[in-house]
Write a protein that binds this DNA or RNA. Structure first.
Length: 288
DNA sequence: TTTAATGT
């Protein structure tokens, strides 16, 4: 019976092939994991933001870009955070503003036209100017991906938020040497409310946060929460909040690797001394 | 070197 002699060796050969394939998959995914972790560590501080188990709406996946990371939510069809580091170093010349581009990783069709005639600006989370200056032209290109955009009212985007971005790169970065920044949207409590209030498919936030951290053994932090409805000329320090407040509004844990003793101090209170905020809180915007 | 973005 020749057929019975063929089968065992066929099985053995198939098993061996499967074993080799599994080995390659394991090594490959292991290498991918190490490389991914290395990039995330370099672009973030004390871990990338994670979410509370109880809140599926803060579930997201991490999109890697040149110079910054984005946490993308397929439920809200929106970024939930962008995280990046800024440092003085050799400041590069900043080129012209590139065109807005669709990001195919989002799967949902969010295009440069999605906000048209909505009354909302395409507002950057990771900012064009600061990222371009610190991380160069390829990173600047990436800031114009639609996965980095949130619908912002013009008075916020072009005035109050722009003033904050300017103060960060022009005053805080030279003052402290290195800053970690996380920015993102805050959505309404009611799920149905948010499900209906959209620009294209993108959910419209009620407010936006920006967290600044000076890394180090004794880190320093400052956090802002700015609503859509601002006029634009308000003093920046009117919008100071604790990181804990932003975490409770978003369901995110921003620095999961931070030791809990440090976390309590850093996230629980508003500690603005040492930032020199008074001197910059009322600087005029560039586009008033 | 010059910080946002829309609409025509």
């Amino acid at each position: 019976m020749p057929r019975r002699r063929i089968r065992p060796s066929w099985w053995r050969r198939s098993l061996r092939r499967l074993g080799v394939a599994a080995l390659f998959a394991a090594v490959g995914s292991g290498l991918w994991y190490l490389e991914e972790r290395e990039v995330r560590d370099r672009l973030s501080w004390m871990g990338v933001p994670t979410w509370e188990r109880s809140s599926p709406l803060s579930l997201h996946r991490v999109l890697r870009n040149d110079g910054f990371l984005v946490g993308w939510s397929d439920l809200r069809v929106s970024p939930l955070w962008a995280s990046y580091a800024l440092e003085p170093g050799a400041a590069r010349g900043v080129g012209e503003r590139p065109a807005f581009r669709r990001d195919w990783r989002t799967l949902w069709p969010v295009t440069p036209d999605s906000y048209r005639r909505s009354g909302y600006d395409r507002g950057h989370l990771a900012p064009n100017y600061a990222i371009a200056r610190v991380h160069g032209p390829a990173a600047q290109q990436d800031t114009f991906l639609m996965s980095n955009m949130v619908p912002q009212r013009p008075n916020l985007n072009r005035r109050l938020w722009q003033r904050l971005e300017e103060v960060v790169i022009d005053h805080f970065v030279p003052r402290f040497g290195r800053l970690q920044v996380i920015a993102g949207p805050v959505f309404a409590d009611e799920f149905m409310e948010g499900a209906l209030r959209r620009v294209g498919l993108v959910e419209v936030p009620e407010a936006f946060y920006k967290i600044l951290v000076v890394p180090g053994p004794r880190p320093r932090a400052l956090a802002f929460l700015m609503p859509q409805g601002v006029g634009g000329g308000e003093p920046l320090d009117r919008y100071l909040v604790s990181i804990d407040r932003i975490e409770s509004l978003t369901g995110l844990d921003f620095f999961p690797q931070l030791p809990s003793g440090v976390e309590t101090v850093l996230e629980g209170r508003v500690e603005a001394s040492g930032w020199g905020l008074a001197a910059v809180a009322n600087l005029p915007g560039r586009f008033d």
